[in-house]
């Protein structure tokens, strides 16, 4: 992936913006991956996860607007802030190209999805513990719970595929 790593000293707003970008990337990844898979159950799960990541974006945007004191409106969020924050990263297309060698089978794709969800869960758990206000903590924990459920669903699907062999 890209060159920038969260170091743990980011402001709450920086974390929210970063998480928003991650959710967008996850959603795009799931939508693209669903189109690459013949197994209808797995493709259906990936599409469902893509929809949930979309709802996470809205929750994060709402939280951002609650906390932000810059005076910038929500319309400026993606246009300005996201471009600034995500500079130097990969597009989803580039990410998929880079990972194509490890996306040959359905199990490969599920494995990659589980890796990404784990990183998402880690991000939310780390920053929800550090959040100083109750609302941020509540929202970040809530999303962490969703990511944990996604991980379990992907794990169950992986197990089912393994048992079919």
């Amino acid at each position: 992936m890209g060159m920038v790593t969260l170091m743990g000293d980011e402001s709450p707003l920086e974390v929210i913006v970063f998480a928003y970008g991650m959710e967008q990337g996850l959603g795009e990844f799931y939508s693209s991956a669903a189109g690459m898979i013949e197994d209808k159950d797995v493709a259906g799960l990936l599409r469902k996860l893509a929809r949930i990541e979309e709802s996470h974006k809205q929750k994060l945007l709402d939280l951002y607007m609650t906390l932000n004191t810059t005076g910038k409106g929500s319309e400026a969020f993606e246009a300005e802030i996201m471009n600034e924050m995500m500079e130097g990263g990969f597009t989803t297309k580039e990410f998929l190209e880079k990972n194509r060698p490890v996306m040959e089978t359905t199990a490969d794709i599920l494995s990659l999805a589980m890796m990404l969800e784990t990183q998402g869960l880690d991000l939310y758990l780390r920053y929800s513990q550090k959040a100083e206000d109750e609302e941020s903590r509540r929202v970040l924990y809530r999303i962490a719970e969703d990511e944990k459920a996604h991980l379990a669903a992907l794990g169950d699907m992986m197990e089912a595929i393994h048992n079919e062999k």
Binding site: V4, T5, G21, G25, E87, Q119
Partner: peptide, 10 residues
């Protein structure tokens, strides 16, 4: 969307 590193260094 642009992906960037969000991994904990390992």
């Amino acid at each position: 969307m642009e992906w960037k590193q969000f991994f904990t260094p390992i």
